[in-house]
Nucleic acid binder design. Structure first.
Lengths: 335, 335
DNA sequence: TCCTTACCTGTAAGCACTTTCAGTGTAACA
DNA sequence: TGTTACACTGAAAGTGCTTACAGGTAAGGA
């Protein structure tokens, strides 16, 4: 045997395999576009030669990095997962890489936001339900990283939002129509540094409708809690244990609504007979539980985010897109 | 406002500096060959434009990169999501990037498996409930990509599995103890090319226990379906519409179990009074629905996968690890 | 049977740099 | 003054790879 040869190039592989370099490239980058037979022959030769494409040459030829990142709150909530599912579904067809960054605090978020533009090598970025500051936005824009915000918006950036206020109104109107007069609200506590807090807007919408209808909303009927199971369970117990308990509860998320259902079941309270429950989001589990809810099309928001990203990566001169997704009341068995 | 900035190239820098691209290149690579004056002028412009040579950017993002990939079936099923959550949770604390590849067919899987070793620049890879062929495994190993398989195993690779057979036995024993004699099974149809099919193993376990107990399992009680809602719904209707319907059903996944619950509710069938239901997985929704189920710790499997990966990335000489995770019967309200 | 269509494949035109090579201007020397 | 030696510089020819395009072939449809 001869001493180890120099680094083989794609040309050598092509030679040996009796095909063109294009085919080699395709075997590596779009394997499905080449005949399985040819592919495995090429692969065999690649292995034999120990060929490794030079990353640097690759970068040169590649237009972008073909990477899009998603920053999401530590993803435990089904709603994030469903948005992610939408994102992944369209990305899967596009050979872009999907990189997930999970953040558990706003600190971590800003640390990502400050380093990603420089070291992330991303073509696009999606921020899920996360706020962004002006200077961070500026940096992203300067670096030509297309960014779409979901559930937030920022001047000059793409965004996909819903009308939370109207969502609250829809829920309240629905409950009112069903004849309820004692309606409670269950939502997440507002974190300190969020500029806009969707649950608060939903509460606001509900409050408005009730007011217009002359229905009072006592403070005791409004519960803002942290997003732990225990807190939710306690709040529901409190609410249902009130001297004059509500006959309906609007939960600002399906997860909370499901908790209500669960506690009610445990307490032997009939739903919707004694207690009506309406949620928000329409996560998968909502359908399984026959939960009436306000649907914001989560999957769609993810898909749309990627589509916006893609179209702007192709043509960055297009103006920022701000989309407001419609809300739909999905009436099932809990109201 | 500036015009939307693209990533600057060496050409732009050259333009602004009024020199040729060659000079820029030299400033970067052989600074001593360039007149100090020209050099500092060029450097200034490079800074101003925030120019980063592309190859370098790519290299930084890729080669020095700490990247672990996860290949998962097109993630629609909660169980995958929960495993992913486990993965993400531990990865978030390390500074590894998490790249998600979703596959909707085995074709796509093998296309990933053939290209990732070469162009993926991954340090580690996690395969979720996906089979791998010898030659693919070989390639991964040759390229030094630590790989852990979840729900499958392959000689020479790390794997995290559960005892599906025993899981089926546990479910059957539980139902038997509860006094059931007419027990049905609902599971996914076996795809053609999977070597091992967990639901089949669960069925096998259940069948064994029933046999030992002298309880018969008529063919009509065994439903293998595709994983669509409609199919599941129809199967449940069929089962419950039988002249002698089962008094208990073991579903090989929680999602299917929840469908059973839903159909039963619609049909006015009391659970667990008239029909007992036991699932498998213990996804989040199972708790919300008070579903009795066999828990395989999904989050834990994800966490563990990453931990195995990490420890072997640090010390590749360690032998492959094959872990069998314990199963727990979680009794709730549906049996 | 002929025409579509889909699938593979090679040709060739990039890509974003790097490097070679042939200058050019200038300063120093005779 | 002419000559030479340098230090710089730009044009252009690579570099190893990707990809748009188009030709060829085989399979399907009318």
């Amino acid at each position: 045997m001869y001493p180890p040869k120099k680094k083989p190039t794609i040309y050598e592989v092509a030679d040996r395999a009796g095909v063109s370099i294009a085919t080699i490239s395709r075997v590596l980058n779009n394997p499905e576009k080449v005949n399985p037979e040819t592919r495995s022959r090429v692969l065999a030769i690649i292995d034999e030669l120990g060929f490794i494409p030079k990353a640097e040459a690759r970068a040169r030829a590649l237009s972008g990095a073909n990477r899009v990142g998603v920053i999401t709150p530590f993803f435990t909530a089904p709603s994030f997962v469903q948005r992610l599912r939408g994102v992944a579904s369209v990305l899967a067809t596009s050979n872009y890489e999907l990189i997930i960054y999970t953040v558990d605090s706003l600190n971590r978020l800003s640390s990502y936001l400050s380093s990603l533009p420089y070291t992330g090598n991303l073509d696009g970025l999606i921020l899920m339900s996360l706020p962004i500051h002006v200077d961070e936005a500026r940096r992203l824009i300067d670096h030509g990283i297309e960014t779409v915000l979901i559930e937030f918006s920022h001047p000059g950036m793409h965004s996909i939002v819903i009308d939370d206020y109207e969502g609250g109104r829809m829920a309240a109107r629905h409950l009112l129509e069903k004849g309820h007069q004692r309606i409670a609200f269950l939502g997440d506590k507002e974190p300190l540094d969020y500029s806009i807090h969707p649950p608060s807007m939903r509460l606001k919408g509900m409050r408005q409708v009730l007011e217009d209808a002359g229905v009072s909303l006592p403070d005791g009927y409004v519960r803002l809690i942290s997003n732990t199971q225990e807190d939710a369970t306690r709040a529901v117990h409190d609410l249902l244990g009130l001297p004059l308990p509500p006959t309906a509860i609007f939960a600002s998320s399906d997860v909370q609504a499901l908790t209500i259902l669960r506690v009610a079941r445990k307490l032997g309270i009939q739903v919707p007979g004694q207690l009506a429950v309406i949620g928000f989001d329409d996560i998968d589990a909502a359908e399984m539980a026959d939960l009436t809810t306000i649907r914001q099309h989560l999957d769609e928001s993810g898909r749309l985010a990627v589509e916006i990203l893609m179209s702007h990566i192709i043509d960055p001169s297009r103006p920022p897109q701000q989309v407001k997704l419609p809300l739909i009341l999905v009436e099932r068995q809990t109201t």
